[in-house]
């Protein structure tokens, strides 16, 4: 037997190679199933458009006036884009105080502002709620800090409604 022939015989694909390939593929399939990698990929690519309504209580008037519609906002401390600010309205801050009888009376403080508005955002909206960018859970009651090129403020989400999506 020549050295050349022995060499080609060693390189032949055999049953052991086949078994190893099957086992390796089985391991990869196991990892994919275990960590729901397919679900995550699908979640990340599925995009629903939502309207996120928010409010800010007792904001300094100068900061309230720096808020500009149409600007892109980001969630501070993360890499998530909150979305474009659709609209906002500014009112004097609502306060509740006791009157002479000890009963609550609603009044407005003209030194501070309340701001209400909404963003257009994208993510996954399913039975578990809304996930900004597919992964960051947001729901009414969530407090976060939003930042654009001109202003930064803390807000509380009051409503998330789906605009488009499956």
């Amino acid at each position: 037997m020549s050295a050349k022939r022995r060499k080609s015989g060693k390189l032949r694909f055999n049953i052991i190679d086949f078994l190893i390939i099957v086992i390796v593929l089985g391991c990869i399939a196991g990892v994919v199933i275990r960590y729901n990698i397919i679900d995550r990929i699908v979640l990340d690519t599925k995009r629903d458009e939502v309207k996120i309504s928010f409010m800010v209580s007792g904001m300094t008037p100068q900061i309230a006036n720096a808020i500009v519609d149409g600007e892109e906002f980001y969630v501070v401390g993360t890499s998530y884009t909150l979305g474009k600010l659709n609209e906002h309205n500014i009112t004097n801050a609502r306060i509740v105080e006791a009157n002479d009888s000890g009963l609550p009376v609603e009044s407005f403080d003209d030194t501070l502002r309340d701001v209400r508005g909404s963003f257009t955002s994208y993510g996954v909206h399913n039975d578990d709620g809304f996930f900004l960018g597919g992964t960051m859970f947001l729901a009414p009651g969530k407090t976060l800090t939003a930042e654009s090129k001109s202003v930064r403020f803390s807000l509380i989400i009051t409503e998330i409604s789906r605009v488009t999506g499956d």
């Binding site: 578990d128 709620g129 859970f137 947001l138 729901a139 009414p140 998330i160």
Partner: peptide, 8 residues
């Protein structure tokens, strides 16, 4: 805690 429509 959180539920689909509220977090707190």
């Amino acid at each position: 805690f959180r539920v689909p429509d509220f977090i707190g």
